[in-house]
């Protein structure tokens, strides 16, 4: 896998009244991620080649990836593959990069989802729907101590597109 083959498909930038260290902590600890990432727990071995996984609230494997770049508290790049049958064969790997930069007294967090091939708007609609909710909640959690209770229907448009490609969806 060559990281240079990947092109950004979704970019989301958000400014947070926090420190780079706290944002890094929020992105890499299960205790934090459960609160803002739809209940999912991140587990990451913070070294290049280390495992990056995310478990749903019932403990099952949801995201299965590995660490590609790790430069705390500035940059974390991981493969971010949803653990559904045939997904990686049909879509290729998904790359997620978190970039953390100081911006005055605040922090600029930029999430970039990249792919090594063009994907349809139908498939990308899931990420376009999910990332703003996740990162809005992360910001609220760090600034006010409480995450947001975002109520969201399943990403139907994406699920149908994946199903049509023969990918096993829940």
């Amino acid at each position: 896998m060559n990281i240079d083959d990947f092109k950004p498909a979704i970019v989301y930038t958000i400014y947070i009244a926090s420190t780079p260290e706290q944002v890094w902590q929020a992105l890499t600890s299960a205790e934090f991620s459960r609160k803002y990432f739809f209940g999912n727990a991140v587990e990451v071995d913070l070294r290049v080649g280390g495992a990056y996984i995310m478990r749903t609230p019932d403990g099952s494997l949801h995201i299965n990836g590995e660490v590609i770049e790790c430069d705390p508290p500035r940059k974390l790049t991981v493969t971010f593959n949803v653990n559904w049958p045939a997904l990686i064969e049909k879509l290729g790997p998904t790359l997620v990069t978190y970039q953390i930069e100081p911006a005055g007294d605040a922090v600029r967090l930029t999430m970039t989802e990249s792919h090594d091939r063009p994907l349809s708007d139908d498939i990308l609609s899931g990420g376009r729907q999910g990332w703003p909710a996740i990162l809005s909640s992360l910001k609220s959690l760090l600034e006010t101590g409480a995450p947001l209770a975002v109520k969201m229907a399943p990403p139907q448009r994406m699920l149908e597109a994946l199903k049509a490609m023969g990918i096993g969806t829940p």
Binding site: Y15, A17, A103, G104, D105, A106, S136, K139, E143, T144
Partner: peptide, 12 residues
């Protein structure tokens, strides 16, 4: 968003 939720805007 910060202003509405926490009462303090960001100084970006």
């Amino acid at each position: 968003k910060s202003l509405l939720e926490s009462g303090t805007a960001l100084e970006i």
